[in-house]
Design a protein around this nucleic acid. Structure first.
Lengths: 161, 161
DNA sequence: TGGAATTCGTACCGAATCAGTCCTGTTTTT
DNA sequence: AAAAACAGGACTGATTCGGTACGAATTCCA
């Protein structure tokens, strides 16, 4: 639940890779090969991240991408916001315009609480923390699958599979 | 970003309404009318919530739905988990099966951190808190739109619109 | 005991979004 | 000047979402 898109998933993988080698520059084909992701997709994502200011890009024959800031300075909230785009909002349906006869929809303002809570949680995790190869977690069954971790927001993820 | 589905949005509105009138029973048409949502959709959501154990349902001519537990005992995490279904997971693509040559995909295990953080944030908010008509927030521009608050997870929601 | 109201389960369809690709510039190095 | 790499779109197939509809099972009440 509360799924993130594959784009975002891929993007985090790419950013983590970049964070593991600061000072270095990577071009799109390199990153695609090392992350085992399709090149067009990687290119698309890097483009987006550069436009959003998370990556710096250098054109030309020896060009490539690098982190725009220190990995410690980049939060998960920023990354997700950059990749998912500013689509989501309290987009109230204004088909008829009447709905204000309720006690002014108490739910809506309370959504801000949830919003803030999740936002705070995501801001509390930096890219550098993601780049650290797991500190001291469950070591078992890590070899299967691999690939990328998408849709990882499942509240029950730890119990399923 | 990190959108929730409309179903979940509606579901929370319905649950909040139920939480405002404990002890009472509501049937689907009543709830649909009072929340201004399409009846078939409401029916579908209530069904789901009942199956997941968040609501108790009573059939028959004077049937209806009621909260299975106290509103204080129901967390947002539960509601979202019930409505979004256990779809999301670290669904690693096993097309080729090789990806374990990387340092065992350090990203994946760290996703659990994010997962936990968000989960904790959602578990910290109970349904009864959502039912409270906003304690002391910004009072302006609350009259516009109304309706339901969907896609409210936008990290930038407070700054946009 | 039978009928009416209500929930339950499932199947279905259109629309929107996502994932992924491709093409055509523009910039930089050699 | 040529090659390599980024930039910015447009485009397409697949999946999921939002919403609807219908029949079956269950319970209340006359």
């Amino acid at each position: 639940m509360i799924r993130i898109t594959k784009q975002t998933d891929y993007g985090i993988v790419l950013l983590t890779h970049l964070a593991s080698y600061p000072e270095r520059q990577f071009n799109a084909p390199e990153l695609a090969a090392e992350a085992h992701l399709p090149l067009p997709m990687v290119s698309k994502i890097l483009k987006l991240l550069a436009r959003e200011g998370l990556l710096t890009s250098h054109r030309g024959v020896k060009g490539g991408y690098g982190l725009a800031r220190q990995a410690e300075e980049i939060s998960m909230a920023e990354i997700i916001a950059a990749l998912e785009g500013p689509i989501a909002l309290t987009e109230c349906i204004s088909v008829e315009g009447d709905c204000s006869h309720e006690p002014l929809c108490p739910v809506r303002s309370n959504w801000q609480r949830i919003n803030q809570a999740v936002r705070a949680a995501l801001m509390g995790i930096s890219l550098s923390e993601m780049a650290r190869s797991r500190p001291a977690g469950p070591q078992g069954l890590v070899t299967l699958g691999a690939g990328t971790a998408r849709n990882a927001f499942a509240a029950t993820a730890l119990h399923e599979v």
